[in-house]
């Protein structure tokens, strides 16, 4: 306990921690402002004029009243055009989105500006058509809503993304203790003492975890009111963040113990975190990622961001269990690895 306590004091007396919190809060604010337009363009639905028509003798024409009702229930006003040239109507602005329904399904025309809206219209139309058999047999549910997933705003997304990203960045705080030990040749004292490598390992791991948790807690406490973040699923979100802090400390301890040079350790950690962050959605959101799914799935940051974002926008996430299992696995694997690395370092 004394080793843990004194290493914790060494960490807490490092003024760089204050800088880390300030940078975390500032970068979150900066990026949420920078990417606000991108996020808004992608997810906000604008008011628009939606026209529609049926091809001649279309088998879905009897659904006309159902279609209008369903769209109305979803706050979309439809304008019926008995005969229309869709491209012309969209081109001259008479309709922002136009849907042409035929026996094979439907075709949606829209201006580039109304990409999101046309997607929603298409989704609703297909949902109605897919239930058309039920309508024809008189079983069509007249009142139903299309479930459209709510999307995060840029403040929520980047607060979560940067909280997660900085959890992993914060593993470098262990460098404070390690560099003080190396600079002051403290290793001599450890090696002369009967203290076990397990005791020494926890002397690194516990203070690092504690400091990362503190840093993240302070940062979240500042960002939440500052950027008006509402945590809809705070308990699960904070459990994921907490496990992330512990996993980050476990990974950091392994790297610092395996690599002799502190600067090289920090460089390796930086590369790892950049990789995790880049593919995990810490810079461009995972919704806009243009790289292969396989790449982003190699990043624990991706799972953490996605599950917390979805928990706080949709109320649930299919990624929660995977994220919790992944973080626990990282911790379970890295703790014994770290013990071995500390032992090897002592012997070196």
């Amino acid at each position: 306990m004394t080793l843990i306590k004194n290493n914790l004091k060494l960490l807490l007396r490092c003024k760089v921690l204050i800088l880390i919190v300030i940078v975390m809060v500032m970068v979150t604010g900066l990026l949420s402002a920078v990417f606000k337009d991108l996020m808004t363009d992608s997810f906000e639905l604008k008011e628009c004029k939606v026209g529609y028509t049926f091809s001649s003798e279309c088998k879905y024409e009897p659904l006309k009243s159902v279609i209008e009702t369903v769209f109305e229930d979803n706050d979309i006003d439809l304008i019926y055009y008995p005969q229309a040239d869709a491209e012309k109507l969209v081109g001259n602005g008479a309709a922002d989105v136009f849907i042409s329904i035929n026996d094979e399904g439907c075709t949606v025309y829209s201006d580039k500006e109304y990409k999101n809206e046309s997607g929603l219209v298409k989704m609703i139309a297909y949902s109605i058509i897919s239930q058309s058999v039920g309508v024809q047999s008189g079983n069509f549910a007249n009142e139903y809503e299309i479930a459209v997933d709510p999307m995060p705003d840029s403040e929520l997304y980047y607060t979560i993304a940067y909280t997660v990203y900085f959890i992993w960045c914060a593993m470098i705080v262990l460098g404070v203790v390690i560099s003080s030990e190396r600079k002051n040749r403290i290793g001599l004292r450890y090696r002369c003492s009967p203290a076990s490598s397990i005791k020494r390992y926890f002397g690194y791991f516990v203070p690092t975890s504690t400091v990362i948790i503190l840093l993240i807690a302070v940062s979240v406490a500042i960002c939440t009111p500052l950027y008006s973040i509402s945590w809809n699923e705070p308990l699960l979100s904070f459990v994921i963040l907490l496990l992330g802090c512990i996993a980050s400390a476990a990974v950091g301890t392994v790297i610092f113990s395996l690599i002799k040079n502190v600067i090289v350790s920090i460089a390796v950690e930086y590369c790892l975190i950049m990789y995790f962050g880049f593919f995990g959605g810490a810079f461009a959101s995972y919704m806009h990622a243009s790289f292969a799914d396989g790449l982003r799935e190699t990043s624990p940051i991706y799972y953490m961001i996605r599950s917390i974002v979805e928990l706080n926008t949709m109320g649930q996430s299919d990624y929660t269990a995977t994220t919790l299992i992944l973080l626990c696995a990282i911790i379970v694997v890295c703790i014994p690895l770290g013990m071995i690395a500390v032992k090897l370092r002592g012997e070196r």
Binding site: T2, N184, R185, R189
Partner: peptide, 30 residues
């Protein structure tokens, strides 16, 4: 090791710890 006290040629103390904290840290290792 429990009965040996090694005073190294180089200073082996943490500058960012107080005097009593340094002694506490290294004595607790025993």
């Amino acid at each position: 090791k429990n009965q040996i006290g090694y005073i190294p040629q180089e200073l082996a103390i943490h500058g960012n710890l107080k005097a009593w904290e340094n002694v506490e840290l290294f004595t607790s290792l025993y």
